[in-house]
């Protein structure tokens, strides 16, 4: 199953709605990078509101995709990380240091606009 990537002006929107298995995560990484290339998008918002856990593998894929997008000139904002997910990530020792975050999709888009204006 592939995760749909929506285009909105110069931004890409992704809402992950179900539990990520390894293949889906890797497929997503590839799809997103291609889409950035295709559309020359400058910003990406990934919404994780429906995700109730992230293990170190998924976290690595996410971290990688953020760094890769940056290399291709697109800023990524992650939105809707649940408290339980944030706590387990921190306890696992995964800090996702230079990642931009926002409470929800709406605030994520606002933040992205601000970042792109700077």
């Amino acid at each position: 199953m592939r995760i749909p990537i929506l285009k909105l002006h110069d931004c890409l929107l992704i809402s992950i709605q179900w539990e990520l298995d390894d293949q889906t995560a890797l497929q997503f990484q590839e799809d997103l990078l291609h889409k950035i290339h295709e559309t020359s998008a400058r910003g990406v918002v990934i919404d994780l509101t429906s995700i109730d856990f992230i293990d170190s593998f998924i976290a690595k894929v996410l971290g990688d995709v953020i760094s890769m997008s940056k290399l291709m000139g697109a800023k990524v904002v992650i939105t809707g990380i649940q408290p339980a997910v944030a706590i387990t990530l921190i306890e696992l020792g995964i800090r996702l240091e230079d990642v931009l975050t926002a409470l929800d999709l709406e605030k994520g888009l606002e933040k992205l606009q601000r970042e792109l204006e700077d």
Binding site: D52, F53, I54, D55, A84, T88
Partner: peptide
């Protein structure tokens, strides 16, 4: 609770992986 559920799920995922 939800936080402990996430902890447990994550721990299992790590071990299984």
């Amino acid at each position: 609770g939800t936080v402990d559920q996430a902890r447990i799920t994550t721990a299992i995922s790590e071990l299984a992986r």
